[in-house]
């Protein structure tokens, strides 16, 4: 396949951003997926790229938030009740 294809390049960028390996093996795997989709008559488009990438690769994503511990409700007292 044409490795200068913008969608292929974007897929690689996404994998890199996700912290996924983008070495030769991954690239080969990605090209195979792209070729198979084209052969199946369901070519990858901008709209389907991300869902497919998530299907093809194990993308853990990044956790940006920390959840708090279990709530233990209490009240605060004020002077004078």
């Amino acid at each position: 396949m044409d490795v200068t294809d913008p969608l292929y390049q974007r897929a690689l960028l996404y994998l890199q951003v996700a912290g996924h390996d983008t070495g030769a093996q991954t690239r080969l795997r990605l090209q195979e997926h792209f070729n198979r989709c084209r052969a199946d008559g369901r070519p990858v488009t901008a709209a389907t790229l991300l869902p497919r990438l998530h299907q093809w690769f194990d993308i853990a994503g990044q956790c940006h938030t920390l959840s708090g511990p279990r709530l233990v409700r209490g009240s605060v007292g004020y002077p004078g009740g």
């Binding site: 920390l66 708090g68 511990p69 709530l71 233990v72 409700r73 209490g74 605060v76």
Partner: peptide, 27 residues
């Protein structure tokens, strides 16, 4: 290690600590 951001900011720093106490102070 936990992070909490108040969405409703009442009473500056003492309010922030008060908010923590109401949620987790008893622990």
């Amino acid at each position: 290690l936990f992070y909490r951001r108040r969405r409703i900011r009442l009473n500056y720093k003492s309010g922030n600590i008060g908010d923590f106490l109401r949620r987790w102070g008893m622990s």
